[in-house]
Each structure stands twice: as C-alpha cells, then as structure tokens.
Design a protein around this nucleic acid. Structure first.
Lengths: 230, 230
DNA sequence: AGAGTGTAGATTGTCAACAATAGGCGATGT
DNA sequence: ACATCGCCTATTGTTGACAATCTACACTCT
C-alpha cells in the first residue's frame, strides 16, 4: 500500500534548516527590517525551540549573507548599499550567462523541461499583475530566474543562485516604488523564454545582460554609491 | 604609540570561524579522508573546546560543501565524483570569465595591483617546481586564481570562489598522479597573467576556458561519470 | 558644562548533562 | 541456513544554566 501523504518525511530534514528557511522568508518579506537585531532568545521562543538550533540557523543565514554577525553583539539583518546591489547583480549576470551557455549545449529534453516550468511561472505572474500584487510578482520574478538556473542541473550553481535570489528580493523589498511597470516586467521574462526556446544563444545572452542592467538602474536610481537603503 | 604587534585583535573573530578555517585546511590537505566521519566529541576535544562551537564550524563547512551532513548520523567529508568535478569547474569558469570581464573594464591601477600579486605567486610557484613540491603548487595554483578573482573587489564573487577553490584542492588532492607537468602549469599561469597585462580581453577569456577545461580533462581521465574518487 | 569613569542591564558565547535516533549484533524462530 | 526481531551502543540533537562581553546611563571630577 502506498504511504499516506501527510507524514511523508516527518521532519526528515535538519531542524536548523527548517528554521533557517522560515527566517529567510521572513527577512526577504520584510518582517525583519534591515539593520534590525535578531534576538536569539526571543526568536528561539517564537519557534518553540532552544537557542542551540536557532543559532545554527542564524549562522547559516550569516554565511548566505542575509545576516551579519558582530562578535559579542549579535546578528543583524543586512543593510544593502548600492555597492552591494551592483555586486549582487554582477554575480547574477555571471551565473545566468553561464546557465544560458550550459542550457544551449544541453539536450533538447532538458531545454523543454526548463521552458515548461518557466511558462508556468509566467502564467502565475500574469495573474498577479492583474491585481498589482507586486510582492507576489517579486517572488515569482526570482522564482523564474532560479528555475532558469536550475535548468542546468548544476547543484552548486543552483545553490549559489538561491542566495543571490534572496538578496535580490531584499533589494526589491526596500524599493517597492522603484519596481518597474509590472506588465513590462512580464514581457521581459516572456522574451527571455522565447529566446531560450528559439535557442538563440547570442540573443539570449544579450537579453539577460540588458534585463539585469536595467534592474540595477531601477534599484540604484537617485542614490549615492555608499548610501544605505532604509 | 603604535599598538604592539602580537595582541593585534586578540581573537577578534568568532571562534567557530577559527575552527572552521583550521578544519578546512586539514580537509583540503587530506588529514581527513573523503568519506570519513567527523566525530564531534573527538574533534572538539582536539580543539580544546566544547561541541557547541565545533558544531557551528562543521555546519559552516557543510554549507560550503566540503562536508555533508546525514541527520542523526553525523557529518562526513565529501566524496567527489567526476560529475562534481565538472560542476565545480563549470562554476569556476563562470566566475573567472566574469572576473576577467570586470577587470578589463576596471581602472589601470586595479589591474596593476592584481598583476603585482599574481607575479608574486608565480615566483613562489617557480621555486616549488624546482623541488617538485606539488602539494605547495596546488595551494599556490588556487591562490593564483583566488587572487585573480579578488582583483575584481566583488566580495560576493570572492566568497563564492573561495569555496570553489577549497573544493578544487580536494579534487587535486585525490589525484596527485594526474597533476600535469609542473613547469607547464607555471607557464599556463604566466600566460594568463601576460594576457591580463596586455588587456587582451578575448585572448584572456579563451585562455581561461582552455586552462579550466584542460584541468577537468586531467582530473576525470580514465574514470566513469558517477565513480567516486577514493 | 564636558569628558571620562564606573556600574548595571541585557545579550551573546560556551559548556556539560540529557534525550533521541540510527546502525550493528546477536538471539530466536522457521 | 536464513530471515526477522529486538536490544545495545555509539553518536548526534537539544536543552538550560553559567560565564564573558558589550552598550547605555548616571555619576564624578576637572
């Protein structure tokens, strides 16, 4: 008989990772503001666990770069400067260009599978555009790019990109007003998908570059280089 | 009056990181063999600390990918398959190509500083070639590439590359015999440096690609795709 | 008034004991 | 002889208490 659905793995993953995942989501959603201190005792109580596992989760997020730890003072939510934004998007460009190249050299099946997932995400984006839910759009935006990179099957590239995606969501979070017109955004992603399907290697690479450079411009406009985002 | 040299920061960095750094060095040097389990109590005693800080260090290395954690069983030193090698070097290519591009667009001062450091490393390599100390050569090899990427000043790119460098050293560690002729290796790095100094963007990119592809070939020759390296 | 110092509070860093789990080994039954 | 069941040991996962450290504030002295 097949296993019942509900208790499929029954907490099979390490506890600290479950906590880290939830915390990360709260951070990129803005429940914890940039610069805010994370009180170990308080948050541990919130998760109904002790400080040990929570510290492990915090350290994990520190290494991902979402939190920053000051010895004997605690961990704080990262404050992103425009220099950080440029760094993040420079690395994203490197990863996505490599992913494009890898996908182009991959089998047609692999490309088809990837496109299938991406189409689904674009459909979801379109739905949320209708109600201007840009919080959801931001999530799907990063989900699109993550799926794109995931198409390569390179687990290390994927893991790297996931942390970049989280940081990017933090950028967007702090700058909702600067988020471009939503319908244009969907169109841009559709364009990337089309170029992938058409196996237009050069066109795709140029489109990726433009897409990311445009994002940096939107995120850094009217700000000084070392200014911290509120 | 200037501060005395010895107690400059007095353990200013988090303890777990100090432990992690030492452990990482022991792993890439082969003190801990691939597949071997890391016993928390034993290693904690070795470092004259308790399991708490050690666990944090282990978790850090897990996230870097050098160790792998099995719930309720412990952490083990990663065993690299040829698929892993291909992944690692694919990401390295992505990062180094991006670094090349960034450096080419950077100021001449930045390039000069980078080249200065790289020259120093190549000199050191040449010394160790004389005595065929390929353990040291492997370290300097990765140091060269890390310095190259560090030249961009992109802290995120650097952090990513440092973990890739550690993984690469593990690859090389398991395959000493396959390491190419040492003098050729020095020549290849000298070539990369020359192309950087000449600001030959295209030539440098092609050289980086060849250099890394050659490494993959050396590391994967005569092995099946999913075979584990002893 | 201002600078420096001492104290108090809160928070993190560390530790050792306790609980839970997985894998190994032997006994038992077929 | 083989498979299965149950215990046992080693190791990890978790917890709460203790120690060390930093920041803030009030107090004193110049």
């Amino acid at each position: 008989m097949a296993a019942p659905e509900g208790l499929f793995v029954l907490e099979g993953r390490p506890t600290a990772q479950l906590i880290a995942d939830q915390l990360r989501e709260q951070i990129v959603q803005g429940t914890f503001r940039p610069g805010q201190q994370i009180n170990e005792s308080a948050v541990a109580a919130q998760f109904r666990t002790s400080r040990g596992p929570l510290r492990e989760a915090l350290q994990r997020l520190c290494q991902e770069g979402l939190l920053i730890s000051h010895r004997n003072r605690g961990v704080f939510v990262l404050e992103l400067s425009t220099a950080d934004i440029k760094e993040i998007y420079a690395v994203r460009e490197a990863v996505e260009l490599a992913a494009s190249d890898t996908l182009m050299d991959a089998g047609q099946d692999q490309i088809n599978d990837t496109c299938l997932g991406l189409k689904e995400i674009i459909r979801d984006m379109a739905k949320h555009v209708a109600v201007s839910d840009w919080q959801a759009i931001a999530r799907l935006d990063m989900q699109f790019h993550t799926s794109f990179v995931a198409g390569t099957g390179n687990t290390r590239l994927i893991r790297i990109y996931e942390t970049l995606a989280a940081e990017s969501r933090m950028c967007i979070l702090s700058l909702e007003v600067a988020y471009p017109r939503l319908d244009v955004l969907v169109q841009e992603h559709q364009n990337l998908l089309d170029l992938l399907e058409a196996k237009d290697r050069n066109g795709l690479q140029q489109a990726v570059k433009r897409h990311l450079q445009k994002a940096v411009e939107d995120l850094t406009v009217t700000r000084q280089d070392d200014e911290i985002i509120a």
